[in-house]
Write a protein that binds this DNA or RNA. Sequence first.
DNA 1: TTGTAAGCGTTATCAC
DNA 2: GTGATAACGCTTACAA
Lengths: 339, 339
Amino acid sequence: MPDGKKLEFTNVTADDVAEAAGVSRWTVNRAFRKEASISRKSLEKVMIAAERLGYVPDLRAASLASDRSNLVALLIDDFANPHKLVMMECLTRNLRRAGWDILLVNTLDRNDAGHALLNASQRRVDAVILIGLQFDDEVLETALHARRFRKLIIFARSSEHANTISISVDDVGAMSELARYVHQRGYRRPLFVAGPQNYSAHLLRKETFFSYWATHFGVEPELVTVSTYDPALAGKVVTERLRNCAREDLPDVLVCENDALAMGASDAVRYTLGLSIPEDIAITGFDDVPQADNPNYRLTTYRQPLADMAEYLVKVLEDSDDEHLGRLFTGNLISRASA
Amino acid sequence: MPDGKKLEFTNVTADDVAEAAGVSRWTVNRAFRKEASISRKSLEKVMIAAERLGYVPDLRAASLASDRSNLVALLIDDFANPHKLVMMECLTRNLRRAGWDILLVNTLDRNDAGHALLNASQRRVDAVILIGLQFDDEVLETALHARRFRKLIIFARSSEHANTISISVDDVGAMSELARYVHQRGYRRPLFVAGPQNYSAHLLRKETFFSYWATHFGVEPELVTVSTYDPALAGKVVTERLRNCAREDLPDVLVCENDALAMGASDAVRYTLGLSIPEDIAITGFDDVPQADNPNYRLTTYRQPLADMAEYLVKVLEDSDDEHLGRLFTGNLISRASA
DNA sequence: TTGTAAGCGTTATCAC
DNA sequence: GTGATAACGCTTACAA
């Protein structure tokens, strides 16, 4: 009765290996651990038997019994932004090297975030990592309420929310440095190109720049807002704004909230408006995506120390469940031809 | 003794809910299924109790007991290629909508592929999806040997391997169409820009173009090879090749194996060599990544019907375990200014 | 429609 | 260093 159930491939269990090797199941288990206190002889016997039978430990069962899944959920959205690819590469590489498996969830829209979190909960992930736009305080609140995971980490975005670990670049320091750079280069009529203004967490860069400018010049810079971090849309918005500008009223620099916006703005300035960069209008970005170094853009931008941030993330995951503080990282201003 | 073990959050089980609702555990289970034959009254009782206690079914346990994990592994590499981001977005969106969870594995190098597969095995995924370069026949062989998953799907690349399901664009048809286009536009001195030549599966586009050219002109086109699909590297290789060319020996069109190479080539031609596109040299790509439509490139390319392919992938996953045939899809030639 | 009992393949605990 | 036994939380029969 119990056999003949699955015909496709036999499910070799630790018991089978134990029997074949003439040891107990628990000994088999130990053979597959790092900190095993097991005799050389037993280990060998087990490994040979396991190899022969094609045994691989079942992580579902292990996780169920131990209440550690070694799995983290990665919630991500905004796939139009090339920076996401860079971040994913960096995170997946580091997590994998440290032995963490990753449950990838494409959070389709803000409404979907709750479902995504629920999903992760049901797999009993050890931690949730958020690299998205749509996770505002309200969503975080729900997440923490239904908390079935040990840690909630917000990557590459600052968050003041308690019970949340934010691993992020120091936006204030970074944008101050950029503002100073723009200032010292002699630009005086900046137009700030901002992304979605829905969520307070995204306003930090803009506010920092604005406050710098107010302090030094006593005026508020011009502002346009793009409703998603989509380069094409950014291009349209910028075109719309500048098209009817008298030549002498044009801004002399576009300070963009990130590279995605900056690249779109750059294309618009050069190809749609027929102006040159940086002679007519300069441009700055943020993130230093690979394309920023491209001859089309040569974007002056700010590089986030992603590798360090990812490394720290792994450390946070591995630490025992103490209270963790988030951490702010300092990156580098990358000066290129665009400003 | 058994309590006080986990202090952070209580683990509410179906038993707890059953007790609170005054029904059996099995009834609780049914309440959380779609095809539940359960009375309205029981359902309500269960749901209220579940809500109050904060119960969420444990998918590890479910998977262990049912031997279906509803989890697929996505093995991916080559993060320098922006097309990967597009594919991931499309796949994750479709899989998620159909209720599949995704285990993301960044396959660091060819050697790592085996580990990645083992990893997936241990989580007992229902299927493995490969979107990578490094999965040649040898790796596939190992994968199939240690097969603990029902399906091995190769996405966006053709494979002749038995026991493997390949969901891919029809490279031969597509490249024939591109070759005809290039031909009819009057180009006569093509240089084919190919990616890594290590694995036979990647040669199809090149071979198709070469065979077209041989048939129609009786000569073999020129060829350069780039060892990874990295735009910057492609730019270097192309520059190297064309720098010492006498003007009259220059190719009149660069036929690139994909957009990543084409964009790198385009940058090199315009910025490093100072030539114009398409007047001095034309360029074609393959994939139609979002950036291909960018004013910097306006790349003539071939668009893969990713949405259809992803939809079919989901269908394949959901079908019972019959023998599946892979399928070739037909896309569209996108004509833009670059050729 | 609902309940009962026997798995699923590990890990944890406690003896030896 | 090694082995028995009880969890872990669900699904799958089968019986009521």
